[in-house]
């Protein structure tokens, strides 16, 4: 009797495994992993005027001869053409500078929220998350009205007498930075907040008791202990911004050429699917390093969980 019960329990567990692991695995394998294989495949093809607009990689010739054509031209173009190299460099630059800006603004905010009275904390945190629930596109759009030459910011500055002629901010890198920081700030604040609230205030009291002044205690105790939060927040900003499309497209100018926008243009305007695929592969290659870093961090944090 007990034998069959054990078998029953074991098959229950096997079924649970199959469903819990199997279904998401199959879904992600089919709709997330397989597509990358196809992207890689097409990045090695040539663009043609056909439907679909790329050449096949292999042809069956007579007598069982398989002819494979691999075209590395797309990749060569990406690395050799100044336009693409610039876009690549500029994407990384924008992502990096924006990450730093988000950190500079986000850290004090997260710290202020984490150390505020508990009845305020939830409200302040809600206010950080709230914009995230409203349309991203519309929030970026809001800046067009503010930053354009005859926009609200210029009106304000002229009225205050701070400037004589309107500044042109829209369609410049500055506008892109503003847009990125604005859109991604919550992604920086949330992990930082989560980290800082876990920090035991007794540590700071102990530091003070040992004669450490508050500012010094902040840099010697709080900052080192919040490093995981800083890294997590930075990755959550850096990685998606490298491939950002909407912000450079709406707020940036011709010189704010970023990989995401370039890929979009190659695909939609030039219908060059192989080149767009090659760009995607390059973008993916760049992001693997920070992504794996983030993953490692995540795992380490989980192992340290009590």
């Amino acid at each position: 009797m007990s034998r069959s019960m054990q078998d029953q329990a074991r098959s229950d567990r096997r079924l649970s495994r199959l469903i819990n692991i199997g279904l998401p695995y199959v879904w992600l394998g089919l709709f997330f992993l397989l597509p990358f294989v196809i992207v890689l495949h097409i990045s090695l093809a040539e663009s043609t005027l056909a439907q679909p607009p790329y050449t096949a990689l292999w042809h069956w010739l007579d007598r069982g001869l398989l002819q494979i054509e691999i075209n590395l031209g797309n990749f060569l173009l990406v690395f050799e053409d100044d336009l693409y190299a610039w876009a690549l460099w500029h994407s990384l630059q924008v992502a990096f500078v924006s990450t730093v800006l988000c950190l500079l603004l986000g850290y004090p905010m997260a710290y202020a929220i984490a150390t505020s009275a508990s009845r305020w904390r939830l409200i302040l945190l809600m206010l950080i998350i709230l914009p995230f629930w409203t349309s991203f596109l519309i929030r970026v759009y809001a800046w067009i009205g503010i930053l354009q030459t005859n926009g609200l910011l210029n009106d304000l500055l002229l009225w205050l007498g701070l400037i004589e002629t309107p500044l042109s901010i829209l369609h410049t890198p500055t506008a892109v930075y503003i847009g990125v920081v604005y859109s991604y700030l919550p992604f920086m604040i949330l992990p930082l907040y989560a980290n800082l609230t876990r920090l035991d205030p007794i540590l700071l009291e102990a530091a003070a008791d040992l004669g450490c002044r508050p500012l010094r205690a902040f840099f010697r105790i709080t900052v080192p202990l919040s490093l995981p939060g800083i890294l997590a927040g930075s990755m959550l900003v850096f990685i998606p911004v490298v491939g950002e499309f909407v912000i450079p497209d709406l707020l940036g100018g011709p010189e704010s050429l970023m990989l995401g926008k370039l890929l979009w243009t190659e695909f939609f305007s030039n219908t060059d699917w192989p080149l767009a695929s090659a760009l995607a592969i390059v973008l993916l290659g760049i992001l693997v390093v920070p992504f794996v870093m983030m993953q490692r961090l995540q795992q380490r944090l989980e192992e340290n969980r009590p």
Binding site: S2, R3, M5, Q6, Q8, A9
Partner: peptide, 11 residues
């Protein structure tokens, strides 16, 4: 007297 080594918790 019954060997329960293999019997799951719920039984």
């Amino acid at each position: 007297g019954v060997d329960v080594t293999a019997v799951p918790a719920y039984s």
